[in-house]
Structures are given as C-alpha cells and as structure tokens.
Amino acid sequence: MDRPTALVPRHYVAIGGHGPEDVVADPRGRILTGVSDGRILRVDGLTEPLDARVETLTDTGGRPLGLELLPDGDLLVCDAERGLLRVDLADGGVRVVADEVAGERLRFCSNIVALTDGSVYFTVSSRRYPLEQWIGDIVEHTGTGRLLRLAPGDDTPEVLLEGLQFANGLAPSADESFLVVAETGARRLTRYWLDGPSAGRSEPLADDLPGMPDNIWRGGPDGPIWVSLAGPRIPPLDLLHRAAPPVRRTAARIAVHAPYRPTGGIGVLAVDDEGQVVHHLSRGHSRYRMVTSVCEASGHLVLGSLWERGIALCEPPAVK
C-alpha cells in the first residue's frame, strides 16, 4: 500500500446532536445522518459551510445508524434498537420493515444498501453485544456478525452469511454482481458474490487494512468505494484475538466497563472493485476523532463519527 496522503480539514459543522455515525449524500448534495437521541437530520448548504442549515426530519424512537436513500425518496434506516425502518421524508413517518430474523429479535443493525432489483441487504454487527458495548465484541472477537437480505415484497429477512467479525459497512460492486462487507474486527473487506458461478460464496477482497473499517459508501458505479477507518491497527489486540475464548471473554468484560477515548489519528480509504487502494488519506493528530463514515458531497469529503457532535468537511483527494 502506498504511503498515505494528508487528510486536510476544511470546516466543522455542528449539528446539535451527538454521534452522526453514518453520513450519506442526497442528489442535491445535502447530508443525511442519524444521531444518538433518535433524530434523523439533514444538513444543507455545504457550499457555504459557515452558513450550513440543519433540519430535523424525523425521530425513529431508537438509535439510527446506517442509512440508504431509495429512488422514490424514502429513507431506509438500520436502527440499533428497533431493526430495519423505512422513513417517508415527505412527512417524517416511520415504519418498521423488519424487527426479527429466524425467530430472533433484530438488534444492532449496522449498514444497508438497496439494489436496482429492489433487494435490500443489511448487516448485523453483533448478536452478543448491544451498540453501547460495541467494544466488547471487538475485544472478544465473537464472529457473530451477519449479512441479511430482504427480497422485494418480503417482510422477513434471510441470513446470507454468518460468522463475520463485527459486520459493518456495505456497498455494491459497480455491476451489482457482488457486495463488499466491512469486517471491523478483522480489518478487512469481504466480497460476497450475488451472481455468477461463485454466487453465495464469500472471499477476502482487501485484507490487513491499516485500520478498522466502519461504514463504507459508493456514490455511483463510476466512483470508488469509500471506507472509513474508525481506529488504527492495534498490535496487542491482534495478539489477543489469537488467545483462547475464555481469555478474550474476560478481556471483553473489562473493556466494556473501562472508559473509552478514541485516538487522535484518523483515516479513510478508497478502493476499486478489485480491492486495490485508489486513495489512502490520513491525519496523525486530529481534533475530529473516530471517523465512522465518509461520503462525497458538494466538493468535500464528508466525515461522520460515533464520537463527535458534528460532521467534518475535508479536502477531496487529487484525481490519480
């Protein structure tokens, strides 16, 4: 992997809420995000960030994480507490699409994509730890993450892939022949084939990433897949993951009760459909920490964070 280039901040936009975990751009360059009190927000005016406007669209009554805009203007929401939701952005109405899978309550939904055939795919990060104890799953290395599918017209998801290490971000290939799943706990991107002779099978797409991938985003088939890196590689954690399960469980019990503070280093990647890194941007000492999402909008790279109270606007990379 080439040496990273600088991730240069331009502006910070306070949004009046904590933890804009996922950021997505609409066709007009506005940013949609969900915050910890349950609200879905829309940030407009990024071309003049100092005058940006923040509007509350609805309240899910839970904790919204991953978002996906649909062609009809509605918004799909992975809610860590309520399951998979659909929001009518015209009137703010919230409808539960699915709240259980295989007889189990659907919790800790993380990220979501909708393909052109109407199929919806989404991830569950952990079946053992709730969102507020996410670090426990990272430490224990439970491998209880899932990839799920909701077929057009169905209200019951099916499990496509299990055993994922904190399944997180999700994006389609340019031709929608496969999905890319971020496994935060394994520092890798995994390819799950939807079509062709390998349909239903998975394989690594990009391994040994320089940090822990979180949400991923693709603006269109001609662009790369942007990958947020929520934290750096931690060699002692790599060693712990090779320890016996009882050791990892003990360490996880300690971790969920210990105060957590993210590092000052942040980074994002852009990869192509072959898993090759197109861009690697990083900043060693940043006041904006724990980047959990990234997208492109209005000439900016827009960063979201589970930790912060706003979004960051950064210089986009030079075209290679």
Results as ranks from 00 to 15, higher is better:
163 G>A: 02
257 H>Y: 02
82 R>E: 06
155 D>C: 14
37 D>H: 11
180 V>R: 00
175 D>R: 06
49 P>S: 14
220 G>K: 02
98 A>E: 05
279 H>R: 05
242 R>I: 09
68 E>I: 00
312 A>Y: 11
53 R>T: 11
52 A>C: 07
135 I>F: 12
181 V>C: 10
88 D>H: 07
98 A>V: 08
81 E>Q: 15
127 R>V: 02
109 C>N: 13
58 T>E: 02
9 P>L: 09
26 D>Y: 04
181 V>T: 03
54 V>G: 13
275 G>L: 09
105 R>A: 11
142 T>E: 11
96 V>A: 11
77 V>Y: 00
156 T>Q: 15
133 Q>D: 14
232 P>A: 13
53 R>V: 08
40 I>M: 03
155 D>V: 04
19 G>E: 00
274 E>S: 15
38 G>S: 08
274 E>C: 13
8 V>T: 15
164 L>Y: 09
285 H>L: 12
118 G>M: 00
161 L>Q: 05
7 L>I: 01
142 T>F: 13
137 D>P: 01
179 L>K: 00
26 D>M: 05
266 I>E: 10
158 E>P: 12
48 E>W: 04
168 N>K: 08
39 R>E: 08
138 I>P: 06
19 G>L: 05
315 E>R: 02
205 L>R: 10
179 L>Q: 03
148 L>N: 02
186 A>N: 08
25 A>S: 14
56 T>Y: 05
202 S>P: 03
33 T>A: 12
85 L>A: 04
241 H>Q: 07
179 L>R: 00
163 G>D: 03
193 W>L: 05
248 R>H: 14
152 P>C: 07
235 P>V: 06
253 R>D: 15
50 L>K: 11
245 P>V: 02
278 V>C: 07
304 G>N: 00
22 D>N: 04
40 I>G: 01
317 P>I: 03
21 E>T: 02
223 G>V: 06
200 G>D: 15
249 R>C: 09
90 A>P: 14
47 T>A: 07
191 R>Y: 14
74 D>M: 07
137 D>Q: 10
87 V>Y: 04
142 T>M: 11
62 G>Y: 02
158 E>K: 08
229 L>D: 09
293 S>V: 07
157 P>A: 09
52 A>H: 04
4 P>H: 09
121 Y>A: 02
3 R>F: 11
51 D>R: 08
6 A>Y: 10
198 S>Y: 06
61 G>A: 11
209 L>Q: 07
80 A>R: 10
4 P>D: 10
239 L>R: 14
87 V>A: 06
293 S>W: 06
37 D>E: 14
179 L>C: 00
315 E>M: 12
211 G>N: 01
92 G>N: 06
248 R>A: 11
287 R>F: 15
141 H>G: 15
120 V>C: 07
190 T>V: 13
200 G>W: 13
122 F>T: 02
65 L>F: 05
319 V>C: 14
172 P>K: 00
146 R>V: 00
306 L>R: 05
208 D>K: 07
36 S>N: 11
24 V>Y: 01
163 G>T: 03
42 R>Q: 12
76 L>V: 00
55 E>R: 07
